[in-house]
């Protein structure tokens, strides 16, 4: 995999994760369990596509090979995507959808908090705008984890099953990541080394409140979304998302 400089790698991780999470939310149009939830899910999706655009515009400028943010989204293949494995997994039932959203939010919000203090003003600016949105996302998703975990017998079972199934994709969120050391020291992402601990703490608190059992520690599964080594799911997500750009090369939309 071609590596860019550390800051650009971070921008791609942020942009791609937000983009793929939003793309999965787009699949839910017309299928939410309540009408109010249609509006809510699309709000989160809109926020995330907006954030992805901001991160990827900056990434494109730094890569500086003539590509735009749109080119990065619609014309890179799966091996070039740096998103977390968690977000490319299918929506499943509403318990799975919310489990994924919450586990992502619990990583996303503290990360954005740190980036607000970045020595890179552009990053600090985007993070400051995004944090307001993501604070609301985690408020909403953690409420749903509690409602479903501590709701009915059926909802508890479904929520627990969703967590058990998705848990091995949290390896990336719960463990230290090499790139973070330099980003931390260089003050691009001050404090980012503590991110995995904070994620663990947030998740442990909410799961306990939700009367859910935290699955065994996720083991390394020898994949790494952030290194461009994905599950089979991402290829299909991209095939759908990139259809028009691929079918009509160089067309303007």
């Amino acid at each position: 995999m071609k590596r860019f400089d550390d800051t650009t790698e971070l921008l791609l991780q942020l942009g791609d994760s937000a983009m793929i999470q939003a793309q999965r939310l787009c699949e839910l149009v017309g299928g939410a369990p309540a009408l109010e939830e249609e509006v809510a899910l699309m709000n989160v999706g809109l926020d995330l596509v907006g954030q992805a655009r901001n991160w990827l515009e900056y990434a494109a400028e730094r890569i500086d090979d003539g590509r735009t943010a749109d080119d990065l989204v619609f014309l890179r293949d799966q091996g070039e995507y740096r998103n977390l494995l968690l977000v490319e997994q299918p929506n499943g039932d509403f318990a799975m959808t919310m489990a994924k959203q919450f586990l992502f939010d619990a990583w996303h919000k503290p990360l954005l908090e740190k980036l607000c203090n970045s020595s890179d003003e552009r990053i600090a600016g985007i993070a400051a705008k995004s944090i307001k949105e993501s604070s609301y996302h985690i408020r909403r998703s953690s409420e749903w984890i509690k409602r479903l975990g501590d709701g009915t017998h059926e909802s508890h079972e479904r929520m627990q099953r969703a967590l058990d199934q998705i848990w091995h994709f949290t390896f990336e969120l719960a463990n230290p990541y090499e790139l973070f050391n330099t980003l931390d020291t260089d003050n691009i992402a001050p404090g980012i080394k503590a991110l995995c601990k904070e994620w663990q703490a947030i998740v442990a608190t909410i799961l306990a409140e939700a009367t859910l059992t935290q699955p065994e520690t996720a083991e390394n599964n020898y994949l790494s979304g952030r290194e461009g080594v994905h599950t089979e799911n991402l290829g299909f997500v991209l095939a759908e998302m990139q259809f028009l750009q691929r079918a009509y090369p160089n067309a303007s939309w």
Binding site: C26, L46, A52, A251
Partner: peptide, 25 residues
């Protein structure tokens, strides 16, 4: 929402995707 939901996952650019999502919402 459904006829548009049919294309929201395939919108060709970020701008078009945002517009369509906002409209469906």
């Amino acid at each position: 929402m459904l006829p548009e939901g049919n294309w929201v996952t395939r919108a060709p650019t970020l701008k078009r995707k945002l517009q369509l999502m906002a409209k469906i919402q």
